[in-house]
Structure formats: structure tokens, C-alpha cells
Amino acid sequence: MGRIAAPAAALSALALLLGGCAVTPSSDGAAAVDQDAPLGGSITIACGAMEDWCQAMVAAFTEETGVDADFVRLSSGEAVARMDAAKAAPEFDVWHGGPVDGFGAARDAGLLEPYESPNADVIPSEYRDADGYWTGVYVGALGFCSNQAVLDELGVDVPTSWDDLLDPRLKGQVSTAHPSTSGTAFTTLWTQVTRLGGEEQGLAYMKQMHNNVLQYSKSGTAPGQIAGRGEVAVGLVFSHDCVKYQEEGMTDLVVSFPSEGTGYEVGGIALVAGSKNTAAAQAYIDWALTADAQNIGPTVGSFQILTNPDAVVDPRMVELDDVELVDYDFAAASAAKPALTARFDAEIAAAPKE
């Protein structure tokens, strides 16, 4: 699946950002904009991408609009848990970044409310929730982030198959996050379910790989750093995270993809239900969907594929047409996530290694 061309659209965010607005509920439950009220206030973002990406985004939005914006960096599972715990008095206004499997779980729990940004029309339809609960801001492919020096010491080739990760020589040499906390790791789990034909088969593969896993990290980006430091041979991350670490000096890292097919993420943005400043939160979403906002990512080493067709294409971004992708069903993944991660906890993560 490659980038899909779409016609450039006149972006209406600037008028919204400069003119300000207030929001009141409409008859269908979505928010309606009052263009005459001031924007003002402050917002807090639950941010699921890299820390420097989050910082650059909120700083640019504040500079552009004068709205105070802050963020808390959270993995997907943490974000849903925090939003659910504070459902009566939400601490966040927007969720920005992280795989939309988690956004679907949050939607089903009543933690998000629909908002169809005027800037969403330019985003390809497969990167948007049909009911307006989230819109995609970037796309990334799951891959292997390997340390060539460690592989050489072990006498193991760069992995190009999921079965390669089951090699006994890689015992304690694979790093992955925990699918209960990490959207990246849940993508890994759901990829196995998809490519192998069912939950039982997917869990069986994860149980086999468990024997080679050093530890399950909380954050989905951590395995790339662990591999980069030479603590393991292979980390399972979205490939753009591995490229970021390469660019930051971890030159032993190499990116590869499984020939049988791999999963991918659509990184989303959504309005948190009960936001204390819905007008500013909507303005942030509108802004985040523009090409200018999305172009901030590569300036801080985040090389995801961008969903706005007018955004810049960096040569360090993966070409999805060159990667074999599984038929990743985001709606099915979201629906299955609570029960499937509970089974992973009970049947795999807690199990002794052979």
C-alpha cells in the first residue's frame, strides 16, 4: 500500500486559528463551532509519538496561535488508562500520535468524541475514521531494528522473516514492548493474528518468540534504543523509529522487514470527550492536519509517512510499496484488543521461559 494522491485543498485552519471559535453541541452529538467567540485558554495533549516530536508540535502551535499547549508523553495503553481514570474530569483535550487501534478502544469506552475537521477532507479516506472519531496524521510500517555488530557476534543474519526471530541463537536477544501498554507491540501481536489466520495461531507464535525476548518494555520505541546500545540483537519497532536512532548516531542499526508481511500503523489525532477547552482543542486538530504542521516531524528526526498529500516526502521515509503488508483491520484490532492483551498477560508474559 503506497501513498494515495489527493488534490490539494485550501486549508481553512488559518482563519480558525486567528479568528478563534467556541463550540457547542449539535443535535447529532458532534461539536458545532461558534466562529465569533475567542479561542483563548490552554490545552493539554496526550502525545503518543517521540518526546521531541511532541515538544516541537505543541511549541509550534502555541507560537502560531497564542494558545498555551502542553503535553504528556504516553504510550497507547497508558493514554487509554489515564483518560478512563479521569473520565469525569478529563485532564487531556486532544490525543495526538500513536496507533489508531488504541483510539478505537478509547472510542468504544466513550473517551473520545467525534470531530470532523474542515481540513480532514484532504486526508485519504483510509486514514480517517468513518464516524469522525479520529484522523490519521502519519503512517509507519512495523519492522526489525537490528544491531549488525551483535548479529555478527552471534553468527546470525539480519532477520527477513518472522520465523527468523525464533532462532535459538537469539535467546534473550529480542526486545519488544508489552502489547497492553504499547501500540507498537499490539501491532506486532495483531500482525501475527492476521498473517497466521486467528488469535490462537497468533498467540502461539508470540509464545514461541517469548523464549527469545529479553524483556517487555513499556514504551514501543524503547526496543530500538536497546538494540542500538547493543543490549540485544533485534528490536521490534516501527521502522521510522529505527531510522531516527540511526540518524542520532546508533550506526550499527539496520532496518529490515519480514517477507511474509508486516503490520502498519496509522498515527491518529482525536478530540477527547469532555475537553475543558473544546474550541482550542479543535483548532489544534485543524492545525495538525495541515502540511506545515506535519512537516515539523522530519525536522526532529521523525520520518513517518505523512498523510497530508502536500507534505514533504523525505527520502528517509519508508516506501510502503516496497514492503509486504498484511491486511491490517484496524476496527477488528480495536475490538479485540482488551481481551487479546489480557490473554497475552496471562498466557505469555507471565509464563516462564523454556
Rank of each mutant, 00 (worst) to 15 (best):
K276Q: 13
N295R: 05
V158R: 10
E248Y: 02
A30D: 08
E231K: 11
V326K: 10
T307F: 08
V266I: 14
D34T: 13
D327H: 07
F330W: 14
D286R: 09
A8P: 15
W134G: 10
G19K: 13
V313W: 11
R73V: 02
F257P: 03
L166V: 08
K87W: 00
T262S: 14
I285W: 08
C145K: 06
A177S: 15
M57C: 11
A6C: 08
A331Q: 12
G267C: 11
G155I: 06
V156R: 12
A185R: 07
T184R: 05
Y245R: 15
Q201D: 15
F71E: 04
A130H: 09
K218A: 09
E63N: 08
L166R: 05
V58Q: 09
A31W: 12
N277E: 04
C145G: 13
A311S: 13
A81H: 00
Q294N: 09
A120M: 08
V137L: 14
W190I: 02
E64M: 12
E247H: 13
M1K: 10
A88L: 07
N212F: 09
Q35M: 11
K207Y: 07
A10R: 13
T251N: 12
S75D: 13
A37K: 13
T135K: 02
T290R: 09
D131I: 02
A349T: 01
N277I: 05
A56I: 03
A227R: 02
Q246N: 09
E200A: 15
V272Y: 08
L340K: 01
A89P: 00
R73D: 04
W287A: 08
A37P: 01
V232Y: 09
I296Y: 05
T341Y: 01
G77F: 03
V243L: 02
V234A: 06
V312H: 12
P352Y: 07
K171G: 08
P25W: 04
D131W: 00
S27G: 06
L170E: 08
V213R: 02
A13N: 07
V158P: 00
V255K: 01
S146M: 04
Y138I: 01
M1S: 14
V318W: 03
D101K: 01
Q294C: 04
A6Q: 15
A30W: 03
Q173D: 06
A349W: 01
W95T: 03
D345V: 14
L203K: 04
K171W: 06
D252N: 14
D70K: 11
Q148C: 00
L14E: 15
F344D: 07
T160Y: 06
P159T: 01
D314P: 05
G143C: 11
D310E: 15
S182I: 07
E113P: 03
T191G: 08
G40E: 12
A332C: 02
F238R: 02
A6V: 05
A333S: 15
S302R: 12
S175Y: 04
G261C: 10
A22Y: 04
G183H: 11
D164R: 03
Q304Y: 09
C54W: 04
A109V: 00
S26Q: 15
A141P: 00
P118N: 12
E91T: 14
E231Y: 03
V174Q: 07
T341A: 12
